[in-house]
Amino acid sequence: MNKKTKVELMWILGVIAVLAVSMVWNIMLVDNQSAEIAQADTGKIPTGPYVIDVVGRQWDWAFTNYTGNTTYDAFTVQVNHTYTLVITSEPNPGSTAVIHSLLIPQMGLQSYAVPGQTNVIQFTPTHVGAYYFVCVEYCGEYHYTMRGYMTVVN
């Protein structure tokens, strides 16, 4: 084994080692918080005071809380409660149901809104304030207007 081969081996093994560590770390973290990753609903849609139905439409977000009140492009949650978002996509009159994606960057929360599929995702706001959210899956002409603020209150 000459010096050149040694160097090559070193860099290959080094890269693999760094990767292995980050991979295991990634898997552990994700498994711990798998409820905070969008998953297609398996049949039973959760209900309760901390469940919010989210419907992406061309071109607004409709948030319905358990009392049946619907707000558009804005919603309010209470701090330190674990909320479940039930996200899907429906057509507005005269339009089509297309794929959207709800992103609340400050919460690290994202889920597609897919027609004919219900995605469930959980999050727990820990700070009071207003957080912006946007649609990040291109959905037509007024895609950029699908944005607003989530308000976290005490």
Binding site: L19, M23, N26, I27, V30, Q39, S111, Y112, Q117, N119
Partner: peptide
């Protein structure tokens, strides 16, 4: 990854994507 295909899907492709670094 965020389309609701599930945690197993995410983890498989996340891990595979790490390998691209090699």
């Amino acid at each position: 990854m965020n389309s609701g295909l599930g945690v197993a899907w995410d983890l498989f492709f996340s891990t595979a994507s790490f390998f691209i670094v090699i």
